[in-house]
Amino acid sequence: MARAGVTTERLARAAAELADEVGFEDVTVSAVARRFGVTVASLYSHISNAHDLRVRVALLSLAELADRVADAVTGRAGKDALVAFANAYRDYAREHPGRYTATRMRLDRETALASAGPRHSAMARAILRGYGVPDEEQTHAVRLLGSTFHGFVSLEASGGFEHSGETETSWARTLDALDVALRNWPSPPA
């Protein structure tokens, strides 16, 4: 196996590349083994099972996306930060469709907390503080942002907007609407 250069990190990267080519759902241990020219059994010294492999792809993808978002929002505030944040997500989903799907994988609590997921939340909350969204309301606002970004990106990727033409104007208007919503965040219920 040393000849193939198999490591846990290389397995995750190969599986992530495969996910972008064939879809995250179709990533299998046997397909990754074929990429390395080794037997499936030889990979089990690096991963536990197919689920473990997919979790590793999810963790890799979450980290890549967090790095991309951090680079995009650095030095920005307000709507500029919001747009940079959103565009980083959308661009990543377009460039790496399988990896983006992997970022949506449900992880157990311990794994999720140890992943780059909390970085995503922290960056979103930093943007929200710039809008003056109160701390006790930020979870709701983070959910609004995530739902909007993911919903748009998922519909776009699945061809849900093909019948109605270009999507750039819709994307820009969606971000305009989010900016207005965040600037006018409602007071918490009494």
Rank of each mutant, 00 (worst) to 15 (best):
V73M: 01
T103L: 04
V57T: 10
R99A: 12
R90M: 03
E166V: 01
A16R: 07
H120P: 10
L145S: 02
S42A: 15
E137H: 06
L53Q: 09
E110R: 13
H163N: 00
V69G: 07
R13M: 12
A50Y: 01
S187I: 08
Y89Q: 05
G117T: 10
N87F: 07
L178P: 05
D179F: 02
D52L: 13
T8H: 01
H46W: 15
Y89V: 00
A126C: 00
A114K: 11
P118T: 02
G117F: 14
S158Q: 09
P97S: 10
L145P: 02
A14H: 05
S121I: 15
E95K: 08
D67I: 05
S30K: 12
A12Q: 08
V142G: 01
A4D: 07
S61E: 09
A70I: 01
A19C: 02
A77H: 14
G78H: 08
E136L: 12
N49Q: 04
G98P: 11
D67Q: 13
S48R: 15
H51T: 12
V57Y: 10
R119Y: 00
F85N: 11
P134V: 05
R54W: 11
L18D: 02
V55S: 08
S48I: 13
R10T: 13
F36L: 10
A93L: 09
L62F: 02
L11I: 15
E137N: 03
L82E: 06
A19F: 03
A88H: 05
G5P: 02
E162G: 07
P134L: 06
R54A: 10
W171K: 00
D176H: 04
L62N: 06
E156A: 10
A181Y: 02
E162F: 00
E25W: 06
E137K: 05
V133R: 02
G23F: 04
A66I: 10
S170K: 09
M123I: 13
D52R: 13
P118H: 03
R90L: 14
A63L: 12
A41H: 02
M123V: 11
Y131E: 07
A14E: 14
L178S: 03
I47G: 06
S61Y: 11
S30A: 13
N87M: 12
P189E: 01
P186L: 09
T39Y: 07
W185L: 06
A72P: 08
W171R: 00
W171E: 00
G132I: 11
D52S: 13
G5M: 01
R104A: 15
Y92I: 09
D71G: 14
S121Y: 05
P118Y: 04
V55E: 15
L18G: 01
A50W: 04
A81W: 09
G37L: 08
H51K: 11
G146L: 11
E9N: 03
S42E: 14
A50F: 03
A4W: 08
S121V: 15
L182C: 03
M1S: 13
N49M: 04
T8R: 15
W185G: 04
T148K: 06
L107N: 08
E110L: 12
G78A: 07
V133Q: 03
T111F: 03
A15M: 09
D80H: 03
V153T: 13
A177P: 00
G165R: 02
S30R: 14
A77E: 15
P134T: 03
V6Y: 08
N49W: 05
T74V: 10
L60G: 10
A86C: 14
V6A: 06
